[in-house]
Amino acid sequence: MNKTIRTGLVTLATAILTACGGGGSESSTSSSNATSFWTLDSYQYINGGNSAVSTSSITGAVVTTAVISTATVSGGDSSNGAYSGSALSFSFKGSPVTGVYTVVPDRTSFVAADISTSPILVDVTVGIARTTGSSQYTASSGQVHVTRDTSGTYHFTSVAAMPTTKTLDVLGGVAGAPVSMPLAVVDAY
């Protein structure tokens, strides 16, 4: 049941974000001149500016979820082969404040985490600009610095590369995708 709900959420988030339009990673762009990007292993995604934020409540605590994507209706990012198109999801508890949040390894740990520990759940999905399948990875540890600019937009930067593990394949997933890869995030918003 939990896997079905999670698949539905990933599909819904992808559909919403791909309908938003926006940019994506271009093969001529590199992290040396990009100011907002993330990398999953050797695959790089330049922030396309597609983002959505929602709030909900679990066990009496406010939960904010921000999703950032490079995928567009026309596909967007095409420079990463079967890994083209990516979306990041950050869920954190409590009144959103600027600061460093501690990564929890799964949804169960996130729900159970004490709000005073500043827990954050980080998922990255790759392959969403293709019709051949996508794979979701979840960070298992690390820290994420969260800020909010004057327009109210959340910005996310990992303190260091975070280990991730594949947690979900949609439509068979990305063929040959490894079980784990490191994720680094630089000012994604």
Rank of each mutant, 00 (worst) to 15 (best):
T4V: 13
T7C: 06
L9V: 10
A13K: 03
G21R: 11
T29F: 10
S30W: 03
S30K: 06
N33R: 07
F37L: 14
W38H: 13
T39K: 11
S42Q: 14
Q44H: 01
Y45W: 10
Y45L: 06
N47H: 12
N47W: 14
G49W: 09
S54L: 11
S56L: 08
S57L: 03
G60V: 06
T64E: 04
V67E: 09
I68Q: 07
T72M: 04
V73T: 14
G75R: 13
N80E: 08
G85E: 04
S86P: 07
A87I: 04
A87Q: 13
F90C: 12
T98D: 07
G99C: 10
Y101A: 06
V104W: 01
P105N: 05
D106F: 06
R107S: 01
R107Q: 03
S109D: 02
V124D: 10
V126D: 06
T132H: 05
S134H: 02
Y137M: 05
T138M: 05
A139Q: 01
S141I: 02
R148H: 03
R148W: 00
S158T: 03
A160P: 00
A161W: 08
M162P: 06
P163K: 04
T164L: 03
D169V: 12
L171Q: 09
G172N: 11
A177E: 09
